[in-house]
Design a protein around this nucleic acid. Structure first.
Length: 432
RNA sequence: GUGGGUGUAGCUCAGUUGGUUAGAGCACCAGAUUGUGGUUCUGGGGGCCGGGGGUUCGAAUCCCCUCACUCACCCCA
């Protein structure tokens, strides 16, 4: 193929195609998620992939990188712009608000699975079009829900057989105590300003909390000397966090408190959490979430508590594949990609008869295929073997003349004849 | 936006101090007598060595530029 040809077009940067064999894991992951979400009372909501740009600016925060430089934003009708969703919490809240659910069914649990878009440089497990699955519990301030959402996430991972993930939790305070802590932290860090890395110097003004999870060695040392989040949260937040910790213990959910855990999106309050996995590259988060009690009021609704998470599907998949690679025992089940029967036509003259039989057999629900590449009978057998067809039907002049079907079991090599199509169907179905 | 790494057949990679028609494995296709697969054997198709420029008698191999991919940083799932 001439890749210098100007007709040759590739997928845009950071966009991936998912082919059938790979898709198996996607379906497996989606099914695991759907089942666990439904078990916990969360139901699917599907929102548009586009939203009014203002929704994300108001919810995610004007000074975040996502809004400043990573959104795919396009002109819509005169004077307005739309943006491909960079995350799905705000859209779900928007829908909740738009349909005024707080008036009728205030407490709602939703889940979603779908593509998100961020215009950043792609790297391991992070793409420009990526996929998230997440849940949102809206209309309650109950700390037990914080733990419920985490438990739901870990159950999905358990079901997928993921080993070695770590649950990290922290509290970042609420609108009452966070501003105070922000000021204190800023003041304390300014004393070390010359020792901090260039990035953190800027972060003091831009987003102080980010200094707390800087990877720079010196910055790590310095933050040992400044007061941490928990010392400055208000009694309300402290009580909330205490209940959260107690609930973890009640259901034997392992977790670690990470006082340096912060979040990049502005809307988080109180509890924040992350699930990380060592199979990932430098950025090891596969799932992240927390409480966002101010989000709905930020976009014009009444004060409404909410909590939820988003799991990165590509990232989670890397972790799952790594686990399976290590265990080596579990071979992926690819049987859904193979037909039950492959019909081999002996000559060109018998193809129409084969095509007729193929359609008849498909009516019974069997997956049946035949050759469309004018291959020789031998080559057709090779294909049948290659694609792991459980049975073949060999159809030639002899069979047509006698009015029989010759069925071959590809595992045992046994061949049987029958003039009764229903009997053939029963044999194939009985052998599954 | 910034930094590092890599770019040779569909895939994974070899290619020696620059030297004649660029290789392997896998995959693909075709044969190994009469209408039939899986193992084996034989043969075959397929690469202007990412692109452009330069050095040289001669470059996949050296130099420059460019593009792409990749890892990492910022930020984030």
């Amino acid at each position: 193929m001439d890749k210098g040809n100007d007709k040759y077009v590739k997928a845009p940067l950071g966009m991936k195609d998912i082919f059938p064999d790979e898709r198996l894991l996607w379906t497996e992951m989606e099914n695991a998620a759907r089942e666990e979400f439904e078990i916990a009372g969360y139901h699917e909501i599907r929102t548009p992939v586009f939203e009014d740009t203002r929704l994300f600016v108001r919810s995610i925060g004007e000074t975040t990188d996502i809004v400043e430089k990573e959104m795919y934003t396009f002109g819509d009708t005169a004077g307005s712009t739309i943006t491909l969703r960079p995350e799905n919490t705000a859209p779900v809240m928007r829908a909740y608000l738009e349909y005024e659910l707080f008036k009728t069914k205030k407490f709602r649990k939703f889940y979603y699975i779908g593509p998100m878009f961020r215009k950043e440089r792609p790297q391991a497990g992070r793409l420009r079009q990526f996929h998230q699955m997440g849940i949102e519990a809206i209309g309650s301030y109950d700390p037990l829900l914080d733990v419920e959402t985490i438990k739901v996430a870990t159950r999905v991972y358990d079901r997928l057989g993921l080993d070695g993930y770590v649950v990290k939790v922290n509290t970042i305070g609420c609108e009452k105590c966070r501003p105070g802590y922000r000021a204190i932290l800023k003041e304390e860090l300014l004393q070390y300003k010359d020792e901090l890395c260039e990035l953190c110097k800027a972060r003091i003004e831009r987003n102080v909390f980010r200094v707390l999870d800087c990877k720079n060695k010196k910055c790590k040392e310095i933050r040992q000397n400044v007061s941490n989040t928990e010392d400055h949260t208000c009694s309300d937040c402290r009580d909330h966090f205490k209940t959260v910790k107690g609930a973890f213990d009640d259901i034997n959910l392992e977790y670690t408190i990470d006082p340096h855990l912060v979040r990049g999106l502005d809307y988080y309050t109180k509890t924040v959490y992350e699930i990380t996995h060592p199979a990932m590259g430098a950025r090891d988060t596969i799932c992240a979430g927390g409480r966002y009690d101010n989000l709905i009021s930020d976009i014009g609704g009444p004060p409404t508590g909410a909590v939820g998470f988003a799991a990165g599907m590509e990232a989670s998949m890397i972790a799952v594949l790594k686990t399976r690679e290590n265990n080596k025992n579990s071979q992926p089940d690819t049987s859904s990609l193979s037909p039950d029967v492959y019909i081999v036509s002996i000559s060109a003259e018998t193809r129409n008869h084969c095509f007729k039989l193929l359609n008849e057999l498909r009516l019974s629900g069997l997956s049946v295929d035949m050759d469309y590449e004018s291959r020789t009978p031998k080559a057709q057998m090779k294909v049948a073997n290659k694609i792991n067809s459980r049975f073949t039907i060999i159809m030639g002049p002899d069979e047509i003349e006698k009015g029989v079907i010759k069925l071959k079991n590809m595992q045992t090599g046994d061949e049987t004849f029958s003039g009764d199509t229903d009997k053939i169907i029963q044999i194939v179905k009985g052998n599954k």
